[in-house]
Design a protein around this nucleic acid. Sequence first.
DNA 1: GCCCTGCCTGTTACAGTGTAACGCTCGGCG
DNA 2: CGCCGAGCGTTACACTGTAACAGGCAGGGC
Lengths: 175, 175
Amino acid sequence: MEAGKRMDEHETCGHHGHAHDAHGPARTADLVARAERLAQDLGLQFTALRRRTLEVVAEEGRPLGAYDIAERLSVPGKRVAAVSVYRALDFLTEHGLVHRIASRNAFVPCEHGHGAGESAVFLICRSCGSVDETISAEIERSLDRTLAEAGFKPASRIVEIEGECGACQGRSEAG
Amino acid sequence: MEAGKRMDEHETCGHHGHAHDAHGPARTADLVARAERLAQDLGLQFTALRRRTLEVVAEEGRPLGAYDIAERLSVPGKRVAAVSVYRALDFLTEHGLVHRIASRNAFVPCEHGHGAGESAVFLICRSCGSVDETISAEIERSLDRTLAEAGFKPASRIVEIEGECGACQGRSEAG
DNA sequence: GCCCTGCCTGTTACAGTGTAACGCTCGGCG
DNA sequence: CGCCGAGCGTTACACTGTAACAGGCAGGGC
């Protein structure tokens, strides 16, 4: 695998000032650059619609439904249908640029450089709706072990934890 | 047509005996008994609709959508609406008698005695559609550790692995 | 008994999510 | 030029889920 060399700059979390405030323009540019590189390398088309879809998702900082994305992409006189967004999202998820949150029917930008096959853990806050993506080799290992014991050959993995993020815990306790 | 005593002749996978061939009448009776005990203990109502919903899900051996359940519960002249099924499913999931498979929008019977708060791992086979529910203390531990590091307070956990089950691997290799 | 109340269920209506099918455009290629 | 494949627009439709309201039924107080 190729992914191993990138040092994870975002410091999963000592306190709560962690990854999920790292959206916005910078994260967007990052992702778009990654997409362009990837498209070039693999001979894929990173079209305007796919780019704009990725940008919308990346800017948001919380999971967006396909219809929400379609709405944001639409301008008076030029409406983008949800079905087009779904196709763009298919492309983006397939190449690990965005992730689908199954428990919310919504999409978030990928916060790591890992490929589509890698497994991530999504921490979904019930209070603020933010989603934090973390990776744990330990979890992957124990998962792999369990799968091996069951004789199960995994293709994709979904790990989503709902609860309350650190920031919201502090907020609800302190008032 | 819906005789609860019918023997399950369809034998998803003859050999490889792990949990997921433990559906059918026996599993159903188990679950119903558990539900009755639970209702008695907590002063809840295990109504006919809830019971029949549980039975349908337990008999099936693969994830069932709410509308499929509604269809199975309906008889000519007496149609059960999906919305009623959803309410029954709310009750059943809330008390850990069935689980919702988020990635499929479908429901499976609980194959363990654990409560609703426990975390299970679902192995979903792409070939035969069966779902195997396993529990791993090791996975839970590593998950807990990751959550603690992130300062995240979990409320519910979703772990769903899609892939190919042991039986189907054998089948596709051997022909 | 009667009413009140709470829970469950039936029913309708509707919002949200996702896909199938068809046709068009555009760019590359013989 | 015509062919072809990929992407996209459009329509139509299926599936998933919830809100709101009405009726039924059991238990409790009078």
